[in-house]
């Protein structure tokens, strides 16, 4: 009994020492198990299992004999016709406020015009010059009035230029029959073509005769101060006047233009 008691503390101490060693140094045990070994992933767990083959409707259907050709048709439809233009180009007048090389000043002037002018403003480059024009006036008189108008706002030095202008297209009335009582007499015709202005009376007379013969229309001149203005024809419709104007220009009278006066 006494011998048993004496040996017990030794055993206890050894056991405690072993516990301390293993708890302080778990790597020692783990390392000895893993050191250099080739660990085949062993089926050492009860969870390890031999996977079974499962049937699945989707996976089972993936067979080449089930693959049919899938066909679609891509329908190409021609584009709708482009919308009719809202404006057309005719000969007329604009007010030009600037023509120069300085684009910065030009832009500044465009901004000023936007505040003062309600008509369309055009800013573009032509013949290496930046140009600012506004308005689309069929008659020179209207353009001249606008030149006077913008002077009130401090924009001086504007001038009238003749060029193609945009005018709204009105419903086409060609083919419609105009009642006889609404046909205006030639006397009331407001359009005429001013062909030339000269200070030489003899030249004015000669040209008047020449125009009469050449275009078979009435031609005359009027005195305006020291100048003689030579006119050709009288037209009720602007379109008719423009047609003759084109002929006059083709004949070499490049400065001819259309005059409207009621």
């Amino acid at each position: 009994m006494i011998r048993q008691f004496k040996s017990t503390p030794k055993i206890y101490i050894l056991v405690v020492a072993a516990i301390i060693f293993s708890s302080c140094n778990p790597q020692g045990i783990r390392r000895s198990r893993m050191q250099g070994e080739e660990t085949m992933a062993k089926p050492d767990s009860f969870l390890y299992y031999q996977p079974m083959a499962l049937s699945d409707s989707f996976l089972d259907s993936l067979k080449i004999e089930n693959d049919k050709e899938q066909a679609l048709k891509v329908r190409l439809i021609p584009p709708p016709p482009p919308p009719a233009p809202k404006t057309k180009l005719v000969e007329g007048f604009r007010v030009q406020t600037f023509a120069g090389l300085d684009s910065i000043n030009a832009l500044y002037l465009v901004e000023r015009l936007k505040d003062t002018v309600k008509d369309s403003i055009y800013f573009f480059k032509e013949n290496n010059l930046y140009k600012i024009q506004f308005g689309d006036y069929l008659y020179r008189n209207d353009a001249d009035l606008k030149v006077m108008d913008i002077r009130k706002y401090g924009i001086n030095g504007a001038w009238v230029v003749a060029r193609m202008i945009n005018v709204p297209i009105v419903a086409d009335s060609s083919g419609s029959i105009i009642p006889a009582d609404t046909v205006a007499s030639v006397k009331d015709a407001p359009f005429k073509i001013q062909v030339l202005v000269t200070s030489d009376l003899q030249k004015a007379k000669n040209l008047t005769d020449q125009l009469k013969n050449q275009f078979e229309r009435q031609s005359y001149f009027i005195t305006s101060g020291q100048l003689y203005k030579i006119f050709l024809g009288k037209f009720i419709e602007r379109a008719d006047a423009e047609k003759v104007l084109a002929e006059v220009k083709n004949a070499g009278y490049k400065d001819a233009w259309l005059v409207y006066k009621k």
């Binding site: 993936l62 067979k63 080449i64 050709e69 899938q70 048709k73 891509v74 329908r75 021609p78």
Partner: peptide
């Protein structure tokens, strides 16, 4: 689809699987 055409026309578009691996 981006090509302009003068008249309405249908272009065929087809697809077909021709080979699968053993996994599908």
């Amino acid at each position: 689809l981006n090509k302009p055409v003068q008249d309405t026309m249908d272009i065929p578009l087809r697809m077909r699987v021709t080979e699968r691996s053993p996994s599908g």
